[in-house]
Structure formats: C-alpha cells, structure tokens
C-alpha cells in the first residue's frame, strides 16, 4: 500500500486526494538491458534563462545587482585610479609638495628630454621584438598540440605549457641571468661541447637578453589563444581544401592560417601590451642598454619623488601601446573578416 496521501507542505492550499498507485513493472526494453544515451537538445523559445522563482526582480535588475560588486570594484580600483593618473600627469610636484594647478610641464619634459624618448622608443622596439619572437615560437607549439596531439592528451600538454608560467617570476628571471651569463649555463655548456671557444657576450645585459627572457615569460599567453583558434577550425575544411586540389603547404596558408588569425592577433596583443610594463626583466638581465620606460616610471614614482612626471610617462606609454594595438587590430581587420 502506498502512502500517497501524505500531505506535502507545498501543496497545502490544495486538496490532494489519496490515490492508489499499483506498482508498475520494469519496461521490456529496460529489462532487456537496452539503454539509450541522451543527446541534449534545448529549444527555449524565451530568451530568459535566469533563475527566477517567478515574481521577484526582473532579469536585468538581478543581473545588474550581481554585476555590481565586481563592477564597482573595477570602477573604484581601476577606472578611477587610471583617471587619477591622467589627472596627476597634469599637475606638478616640487620635492614633496603637490601643485594642483593644470600644467603641461610634465609632457613638455617627457617629449623634450631625449632619455625619455629613447627609453620609450627602445621599450616599443623590445616589446615588438618580444611579441614577434614569442608568437613565432609559440605558433608551432599551438599547431602541434591542436593537430598532432591525441584529444585526450591535449589538456595535459596545455597544463605542461602553463606550469612554468605560474612559478616564481622573480626567480625565473634571475635564473635566465644564470643561464645567459658570461660563465653561465649556456656558455659553459657550449664551450664544454667545443662549439664555441670564447663565451658569447651578446646574450646578457642587453636587449637580446630581455627578449629571450620575456619570450619565455609570455609563452603561455601566446600559445593559448592560438591554440583555441586552431581548435575551432572545422577539420573537414582542411580535407575540403585537399580535396579541391591544394597541397599541404597551400592548405596551411590558404585555410589554416587565415582561420587562426583571430588567435594570432589576440596573442600579439596579450603579449605586446603587458611587456611595456615590465621593469624586472630589464633591471635584472637588460644591463644599461636594456632598460625600458617602465624602469623610468618606477624610478620617478619611488625614487625621485616626481610622481606627476612618472604619471605623464605612464600615460604616454599607455597611449603609444594603445595606438599601436589599435593599428594592429585595424590592419588585421580585413584579414580576419576574410578568414571568417
């Protein structure tokens, strides 16, 4: 006998007459052990996918309410401070007193003092070189993992590639100094193998060292977006290209590469932009010729106590980076549309 008549709180306002439910047997198909897998299909006519108990707040309000804490945090600790830096760059500082009258003095100084422009130019060049080196080195790896690694092994490879990125940044940079030094690992190994007689000197305390070290530091940032773009490519497109008579190489240049472009552009931007802001690598392995604009910004803020000038340099650096990034995006726009 089934206790189907037990009153459930939820249905309290409604009377639920007790019902007798005879047990039903297992269906013949289930008994025969036939099981079917569920392929999910969802056809929701409505655009509403919110968790709504029905009649509370509208979806837009709930979304806004949820987005408010992280949104406000980002506004207060990102947007407002960035605005403050912009504001500060139009003020001036004399020793420790801040003069809040509007002035273009900092920008005048930044643009007329050759050292600043030299550092900015060098930073952009190094960032460009780092970006090219990183992306060119990363592409084959992304391609390899996407096309040649078995699907179930892919996430292991991605994991292996990301691990070094998460390990102590300072110590990693320092170890490159050890590897690239005059008596470093690379030189002593090469000498030991008899490949070179004198230690190589062009690989430490200059821009080359900065490029090598940063290409290492930003490797996963370049590999992941390219990998994701390559993964999205429908493999039958490549077969179609081969079927239509193109060789392996031409298939790569006419199909794979254009379709991977969004990932490549993302990789370029995600490497190029943060590289400008690094002052640790130039300081540790760059030597005097490898210093970058971020070192100067840091110095202005923390050592010379000229925050307004530092702010102006930061604004100039950010603007240059933004303009170049915008240029890259615009230049590749047509390409990317063609790719899609």
């Amino acid at each position: 006998m089934i206790s189907w008549g037990v009153f459930h709180w939820k249905h309290a306002p409604f009377e639920s007459p007790p019902k007798l439910l005879p047990q039903c047997r297992k269906s013949p198909l289930e008994r025969a052990g036939v099981s079917h897998n569920l392929g999910r299909t969802t056809e929701h006519v409505s655009g509403d996918v919110g968790l709504s108990a029905g009649h509370g707040l509208s979806d837009a309000k709930k979304g806004l309410l949820l987005a408010a804490p992280p949104g406000l945090y980002a506004v207060l600790l990102l947007a407002v401070p960035l605005g403050a830096v912009l504001l500060l760059s139009f003020w001036s500082q004399d020793f420790l007193t801040l003069d809040r009258t509007f002035t273009l003095k900092n920008y005048r100084e930044a643009f007329t003092e050759p050292l600043y422009m030299l550092l900015l130019g060098r930073s952009l060049l190094i960032a460009g070189a780092v970006t090219i080196a990183t992306v060119v080195l990363a592409f084959p790896i992304a391609y390899f993992v996407s096309f040649y690694v078995r699907p179930e092994r892919k996430s292991l490879w991605i994991f292996l590639i990301t691990i070094p990125f998460w390990t102590s940044y300072l110590i990693r940079v320092f170890l490159w100094k050890v590897i690239l030094g005059y008596n470093g690992v690379l030189n002593s190994s090469l000498q030991g193998l008899g490949i070179i007689e004198e230690p190589l000197t062009f690989i430490l305390y200059n821009a080359n060292a900065v490029v090598i070290t940063l290409a290492h530091a930003f490797a996963p940032f370049a590999i992941l977006p390219i990998f994701v773009a390559l993964e999205k490519i429908d493999r039958s497109l490549l077969e179609a290209s081969r079927d239509l008579g193109e060789g392996k190489f031409r298939t790569f240049t006419r199909v794979t590469l254009p379709l991977a472009m969004p990932g490549v552009v993302a990789a370029i931007l995600i490497v190029f932009i943060p590289t400008i802001g690094d002052y640790v690598t130039p300081r540790l392995v760059g030597g005097p010729d490898g210093l970058m604009i971020a070192n100067m910004i840091q110095t202005q803020f923390l050592k010379l106590n000229n925050a307004p000038l530092g702010a102006a340099l930061a604004v100039i650096a950010m603007l240059s980076v933004s303009l170049i990034s915008l240029g890259i995006v615009l230049a590749t726009m047509r390409w990317m549309k063609g790719g899609k």
């Binding site: 939820k10 569920l38 009649h55």
Partner: peptide
C-alpha cells in the same frame, strides 16, 4: 497564481534535459 513563485505552486515539471 499571480505572485505565487514556482516553488510554491502545486505544479511539478519534467524538463527537456531532465
């Protein structure tokens, strides 16, 4: 049923995705 939320209604649902 106006103003009665889903968890207080005497209805139960079998979803498309179950």
């Amino acid at each position: 049923m106006a103003g009665v939320p889903a968890n207080k209604r005497p209805t139960n649902m079998v979803f498309q995705s179950y």
